[in-house]
C-alpha cells in the first residue's frame, strides 16, 4: 500500500481550474472569430493566427529565458490575450507584423512584467491594442471593406471601408447632422455586416459567447449589464437632448467595441473587481467613460481607454467594496 496522504480539510475540490476557465473563454470567442473570417476572409484568420502564436511564443520565451520558471503556456491565458488582441485590430494584411509587436507589448509589458497571469493590473490585450493605436494610427484605423457573406476574393484589402463611429465622428466634426449620414441598418449592425475591428463587428456572435460564459458561471451579469446599460442610458439622454449630433442609444451600444469590451474584456477576472458591488461600479464607470470619450474625445471609439481607466481603479474598488459579512 502507498503511504497515506495527509492534508488539512477539505479533501475534495471542485473540478474547476484556471486552465479550464481560460479554455472556456477561448471557446466563447470562437463565434466572433468565425464571423470575422466570414466577413473579412483569410486576413482575419491570418491576423488571429499571428497574434495568438506570437503571444504564446513571447510568453514561453519570457518564462524560459528571463524569469527562468516553468512554462504556463498551456493554461490558455496567452491564447485568450492573443485572440482578444486580434479582435481589436483591423483585419488587413499590413497588420500581420504590427500585431506581432502588439503581442510583445501585451504579453511582455502588459502581463509578464508584473509577474504573469493574475498579477497584471491592466488587461494585457488592451495594453497591446492601445500601444498599437498610438504607435500605428494609420494602419490601426484603415478598415477593410466588408465583403459579402463569403468574400469572393480571398484577400480583401481595399482601404475604403469605414466604421459607423468613424463616419459619425467625421460627419459631426464637419457639421453634418446624423440623419443625413449614410449609416448601415440596425440589422446589418447586429449581425456584423459593418466595418470595424475584426472581433467587434457582430453583436450576435459576441452575445452567443457571452451567454455561454454566463451559463458556465465564468462571468457574472454585473459588469456586462451595467456597462451596456449605463452606455445605453447615458447616450439615450444625450440623444433626447439633440438627436442631430448624438447617435441613438441602440446603435451606440451595438457599434464599436462596447459589446466585445463589455462581455469579454471588462469581465476579465484579473483586472475587474471581485465583489458584486464593485463590479456594478466598474461597469457603470466603463459605460460612462466610453460615451464621454466617443462624444467629446478626439478618438471615435473609447471602449479600450474606458476599460483601462477603470482597470486602474480596480484595486481601489476591491478595497472599498467588501462583501457583506455574515450578521453585519
Amino acid at each position: 500500500m502507498n503511504l497515506l496522504n495527509v492534508s488539512g480539510s477539505p479533501h475534495v475540490h471542485s473540478d474547476e481550474s484556471t486552465k479550464q476557465i481560460m479554455w472556456r473563454v477561448n471557446l466563447a470567442l470562437v463565434p466572433a472569430l468565425l464571423v470575422a473570417i466570414c466577413f473579412f476572409g483569410v486576413n482575419a484568420l491570418l491576423v488571429s493566427l499571428v497574434s495568438v502564436v506570437s503571444c504564446v511564443l513571447f510568453q514561453w520565451l519570457i518564462e524560459k529565458f528571463i524569469l527562468k520558471q516553468p512554462t504556463t503556456i498551456w493554461d490558455g491565458s496567452a491564447i485568450v490575450t492573443g485572440l482578444l488582441l486580434a479582435f481589436n485590430v483591423p483585419a488587413t494584411a499590413s497588420m500581420l507584423w504590427i500585431v506581432a509587436i502588439g503581442a510583445l507589448v501585451a504579453i511582455g509589458i502588459g502581463k509578464m512584467s508584473f509577474g504573469g497571469l493574475g498579477k497584471n493590473p491592466f488587461n494585457p490585450a488592451l495594453v497591446g491594442r492601445v500601444f498599437l493605436l498610438i504607435s500605428f494610427p494609420v494602419q490601426m484605423t484603415t478598415w477593410p471593406t466588408v465583403g459579402k457573406w463569403f468574400p469572393t476574393q480571398l484577400m480583401t484589402d481595399a482601404n475604403s471601408g469605414a466604421t459607423p463611429l468613424g463616419i459619425i465622428k467625421e460627419g459631426v466634426m464637419n457639421g453634418q447632422s446624423i440623419s443625413s449620414l449614410n449609416l448601415p441598418s440596425l440589422s446589418e449592425i447586429f449581425l456584423g455586416h459593418i466595418g470595424g475591428s475584426m472581433g467587434e463587428i457582430s453583436a450576435l456572435a459576441i452575445l452567443i459567447g457571452a451567454i455561454y460564459l454566463l451559463c458556465k458561471k465564468i462571468i457574472s451579469w454585473h459588469i456586462p449589464v451595467t456597462f451596456i446599460g449605463s452606455a445605453f442610458i447615458f447616450s439615450g439622454i444625450l440623444w433626447l437632448i439633440n438627436p442631430e449630433t448624438y447617435l441613438d442609444p441602440l446603435t451606440t451600444i451595438l457599434t464599436g467595441g462596447i459589446m466585445l469590451g463589455a462581455c469579454f474584456m471588462a469581465t476579465d477576472m484579473v483586472t475587474s473587481p471581485m465583489a458584486k458591488s464593485g463590479q456594478l461600479i466598474f461597469g457603470l464607470g466603463c459605460g460612462l467613460l466610453t460615451i464621454i470619450i466617443r462624444n467629446w474625445g478626439s478618438y471615435p471609439e473609447g471602449v479600450s481607454f474606458a476599460i483601462l481607466i477603470m482597470n486602474s481603479v480596480t484595486p481601489l474598488l476591491n478595497r472599498w467594496c467588501k462583501p457583506k459579512r455574515f450578521a453585519c
Binding site: 493554461d75 497571469l117 477576472m269 473587481p273 467588501k322 462583501p323
Partner: peptide, 20 residues
C-alpha cells in the same frame, strides 16, 4: 497556480469573508 482574482472564494464564503 497564481491567483487570478476571480473572487470565487469570496462568493463561496458563507461568512462573507475574503479568503484571497
Amino acid at each position: 497556480t497564481n491567483c487570478i482574482r476571480c473572487g470565487k472564494c469570496m462568493h463561496a464564503c458563507p461568512m462573507g469573508l475574503e479568503p484571497y
